[in-house]
Design a protein around this nucleic acid. Structure first.
Lengths: 339, 339
DNA sequence: TTGTAGGCGTTATCAA
DNA sequence: TTGATAACGCCTACAA
């Protein structure tokens, strides 16, 4: 029972011109071709009738869609997703629309979702934390912006935080403070950044002669981290563990909460540190030492890259690494002496 | 230089059938019409050629788009946006896609953005914290789900938190604790919920014989709230203010941080409370008294409503209010005696 | 059981 | 300067 949209033909009839003229006028391509008087008449009639161009039909006819596909993993807790999404929406504004698809990781689903995006005729694809294995086989040469994903091929831009550097800095920081027994709280989420964080950290520790940390895994979620860590903390402390490193700040907040309820004093009995440096890291007590990943820089970079690929359609070689910086705060201090 | 997509005609030729058959098979409508052997041949050829249906063309032909428009204000800091977005994406899965548009508030932009959405042929519209003045004139009878927006007309569902009740509970809580001089930290964001929170709160206070709080305004952002509140806190305390109520928890965290740097002890010198009850409210010290707004319930409700309107196209009368609950915690206590 | 052909709303190419 | 008309790729009566 849907009201029939008013279409170009309706306007054409009412204005006593052809649809071709309507099209010209509506697209501002009538400057030197249609006399002012006619143009104004068409515009007036269009406004009166409430005519707007059907974007699907236009897309079909022009082969372009003014649509950007935005592919994100179906996992909560990525603190940069929001910032990037907003930046995309804000920056592209009314020139492009953003079609977001959250995909489950997994051969089947990921492939289907990507195909749907392509079938909508997207002009470019922005993908975040999606395994490049799913992206690589794409049979389309639209521009792609990859975030937290390995770059491949031309026409593809990749942006990543320099988490390896951050991890090394963090390792050195803790080693300097005398920490030798460390626990690593890994994230269950599968995305490029977490192995990168961990490997760089472990390598740096190893080079400093520190044994690789024991690893536990939790969701990127305060409550889950709290739940998982709580029953282990006392034992760790007794075993001489003096520091906990979390893959994300969110997990660190959870562990911190657990430490309080276990009466483990931070940083005296144990130090704790994280990655991301969310705003809350300056609010929790003690303030959290964390590797700052500047999300706004990432978002701006991604959008700039997208714009570049969209405008000049040339393939650019772009693999952008965004610098990070360790924020040393009260949650890390000299290790207590242990047996 | 875009590769030409393979289309139904290509498949038809390669499989030695007509495009009609291809269409039937690809849409699973060939069960009883096309013999198994032919069906399998078509599917195989389609797979080999990498054929996928062009969604724009299908949309044009069928008058449907399998696209849900998602309209949100261009302001950061809405803690429920993410949850709702994810719930939409997850729940609708591959049956619908979500087209998100962040709109600036303001006649012009809002109208254009909405028109773009409609011009894409969306099958339904989900709008969050958008002024109903922009929605009301929409010349389309697609289903609409309104969140934090006034309901109007049939075919429209509205979901709101019972913030008024929460505000009353909070007011009573503070009055019982003896607070008489209160500051209200309002949010700059224009959306239905904030006047609702404030009005209900002020009304309840007034009924209890408490003078209306003085009001300051900040962005929904920790740092901004901290920055704005900091220089005022000492004076407030001297003036006998014993409690601060914030429109959102995020602002409360900022104010709390400022209180610490001003050496104002919470809750002894001043109490503080917020709305939302984000997870962090149990992490900050002292834990924050807050009106819990269950975002997941909102999201699930919205999606359920959407499903309902999408399936049976009948207009439903739906104005759903989601219950809220005051969480009393350590940040509020009996008011100190003041001159 | 399968194919033909008209239509969805635009744009773009030619003629006029 | 304007108007027919053929794409664009698909779906779906209606025929065969």
């Amino acid at each position: 029972m849907r009201k029939p949209r008013v279409k170009a033909l309706d306007v054409a009839r009412a204005a006593d011109v052809s649809t071709a003229t309507v099209s010209l006028v509506m697209n501002g391509k009538a400057e030197k071709r249609v006399p002012l008087e006619t143009r104004q008449r068409v515009l007036k009639v269009a406004a009166d009738l409430g005519y707007t161009v059907d974007l699907r039909a236009r897309g079909l006819a022009t082969g372009t869609s003014r649509l950007i596909g935005f592919l994100v993993p179906n996992s909560v807790g990525n603190p940069f997703f929001g910032a990037l999404h907003m930046e995309l929406l804000r920056e592209l504004g009314s020139s492009y629309q953003v079609l977001t698809v959250a995909t489950d990781v997994g051969e089947e689903v990921a492939r289907r979702n990507i195909e749907q995006l392509l079938a909508m005729g997207i002009d470019a694809l922005v993908a975040m934390s999606v395994d490049s294995a799913y992206l690589r086989p794409i049979q389309s040469d639209i521009p792609m912006i990859l975030i937290d994903t390995d770059r491949f091929g031309p026409g593809v831009a990749a942006l990543n935080f320099a988490v390896e550097k951050g991890a090394r800095d963090l390792a050195e920081h803790l080693v300097e403070l005398g920490h030798r027994r460390i626990i690593y709280v890994e994230a269950t989420t599968r995305s490029r950044t977490f192995p990168a964080r961990r490997n760089a950290l472990f390598t740096a520790l190893e080079e400093a002669g520190v044994a690789p940390p024991a690893v536990i895994e939790t969701d990127i979620d305060m409550l889950d981290a709290e739940r998982v860590a709580q029953p282990l903390l006392r034992k760790w402390s007794n075993d001489g563990v003096t520091a906990i490193i979390c893959a994300t700040d969110l997990q660190a907040y959870g562990v911190l909460t657990a430490m309080k309820s276990e009466n483990i004093s931070v940083p005296h009995e144990m130090s704790i540190a994280g990655f991301d440096d969310l705003p809350f890291s300056r609010v929790v007590e003690p303030q959290l030492t964390s590797v700052r990943l500047p999300g706004d820089a990432l978002a701006r970079g991604a959008v700039a890259e997208l714009r570049g690929l969209l405008d000049r359609k040339s393939a650019r070689i772009a693999s952008i690494v965004i610098d990070v910086e360790l924020q040393r705060r009260g949650s890390t201090a000299r290790a207590r002496s242990t047996p």
